[in-house]
């Protein structure tokens, strides 16, 4: 699960915007019986910097760069 958190979007002009967003990833094998999986921490916490462009198909991600700040040691 990628849990997107804080999101800051700054429009630059009518067709371009930039954004910074945070995400925490929870990762574990899915239980065969559909039961919840026990986790002691998150897998990674990362910051992404994005450029959004307005295209003929609507707003799209033009570029996204991730920086992983925190990681589970196990």
């Amino acid at each position: 699960m990628q849990l997107t958190s804080t999101i800051q979007i700054k429009p630059i002009n009518e067709t371009t915007a930039t954004g910074i967003s945070y995400a925490v990833v929870l990762e574990a094998p899915i239980d065969e019986n559909g039961l919840p999986v026990t986790l002691l921490g998150f897998q990674v916490a990362s910051e992404s910097r994005s450029i959004y462009k307005l295209t003929s198909e609507g707003w799209k991600i033009d570029k996204r760069e991730y920086t992983t700040l925190f990681v589970d040691p196990d």
Binding site: G41, F42, A45, T67, V71, P73
Partner: peptide, 19 residues
């Protein structure tokens, strides 16, 4: 999440056990 050092581009992530 509060680390103990900066993480700049190319740096390894900080090892964090929970929040």
């Amino acid at each position: 999440l509060n680390g103990n050092r900066p993480v700049l581009k190319g740096d390894s992530p900080i090892r964090m056990k929970g929040i």
